[in-house]
Simulated assay, not measured.
Amino acid sequence: MQRVLIFGATSAIAEATARRLAATEVAFFLVGRNPKRLAAIADDLGVRTGNRAHQEVADLDELDRHPMIIDRALAALGGLDLALIAHGALPDQRACQQDVGKTMDSIHTNALSAISLSSLIANRFEHAGHGTLVVIGSVAGERGRQSNYVYGAAKGMLAIFLQGLRNRLTPAGCQVITIKPGFVDTPMTKEFAKGVLWAQPDDIARGIVRAIKNKSDVVYLPWFWRGIMAMIGMIPEWIFKRMRL
């Protein structure tokens, strides 16, 4: 039985991924902020798997709680095979520009919290000699754009950290997978106008499960974002800085 720990379990992508993982023999430990939503998802997964899904309500911005949460998950599951870090928040860029405190809050949530969890999980996987860590980043971390560079900076920091973690853990037999979604239609992006480049949470979930199966390293979802970001990356800075993106 695969033992799975999900942080940010009430996010649309995490929920869709958990449902896909529930098609196999699996036991879940779910962590999220919204108690009612978390309980509903746990109940649904319990029905799907025939196993009670453990749950814990927590604000993952509280870094000092991370070790205790992970210890409780390990005790409840009897070990750990897969961890998914899927929490985050999309800040108001203009508000961040006017209030550096909001900028720091976004970096704390979208980078430092995920880095803290990744570090703690990595140490346990390294000691056990196995485990797969999956972390949801963003294509926004590829290049700083005026419209969302605070969020992009946090995701860029996270991507570089995970790259180093992957380099460290590969010899230990552990997998670190960075997921880079493009535009996804979720409650976090409900105010945005949607177009042809937008994906649904289950599209991303399907790609995550495939990445786990294939033991991938860095995955762009949907797939075409790899090409889009490659082209954006080739734009010279003297041109890019004048583009209204």
Rank of each mutant, 00 (worst) to 15 (best):
M1Q: 15
Q2V: 07
Q2W: 10
V4D: 00
V4R: 00
S11V: 03
A16S: 15
R19K: 15
R20H: 11
A23M: 14
T24V: 14
E25M: 03
V26I: 08
F28L: 10
L30E: 07
G32A: 09
N34V: 07
N34L: 08
P35F: 09
R37K: 15
L38W: 02
L38S: 02
D44N: 09
D44M: 13
G46A: 12
G46D: 13
G50V: 10
H54G: 11
H54T: 06
H54N: 10
E56N: 06
V57L: 06
A58N: 07
D61W: 04
E62M: 11
R65S: 10
H66Y: 04
P67E: 08
M68A: 15
M68F: 11
M68N: 12
M68L: 14
I69S: 01
I69R: 02
I69T: 02
I70E: 07
D71E: 15
L77M: 13
D81T: 08
L82T: 07
I85H: 04
A86N: 01
A86F: 00
H87N: 06
G88D: 03
A89V: 13
A89I: 08
L90K: 05
P91N: 14
Q93L: 09
Q93I: 06
A95D: 09
K102H: 06
T103F: 10
M104A: 11
D105P: 07
S106P: 05
S106C: 11
N110F: 07
N110L: 07
A111R: 00
A111T: 04
L112F: 12
I115N: 06
I115L: 15
S116Y: 03
L117W: 05
L117T: 08
S118F: 05
L120G: 02
L120V: 04
I121P: 02
A122N: 05
R124L: 11
R124T: 11
E126Y: 03
H130Y: 14
T132P: 01
T132F: 00
G137V: 01
S138R: 04
S138N: 02
A140H: 01
E142W: 07
E142F: 13
G144E: 10
R145I: 04
R145C: 03
Q146E: 10
Q146M: 12
Q146G: 15
V150M: 07
G152D: 01
G152Y: 04
G156F: 00
L162F: 03
Q163V: 10
R166A: 13
N167Q: 15
T170Q: 08
T170D: 06
G173H: 12
G173M: 14
C174H: 01
I177M: 11
T178E: 10
I179A: 01
K180Q: 13
P181Q: 05
G182C: 06
T186W: 04
T186K: 02
P187T: 09
K190N: 03
E191F: 08
F192D: 12
F192S: 14
K194N: 03
Q200W: 06
D203A: 08
D203H: 10
A205C: 05
A211S: 03
K213H: 09
N214A: 13
Y220P: 00
Y220W: 05
L221F: 05
L221M: 09
L221R: 02
P222Q: 11
P222M: 12
W223P: 04
W225C: 00
G227M: 10
G227R: 01
I228N: 02
I228Q: 02
M231F: 08
M234F: 08
M234H: 04
E237R: 12
E237D: 15
I239W: 14
R242C: 09
M243S: 06
M243H: 04
R244A: 12
L245H: 01
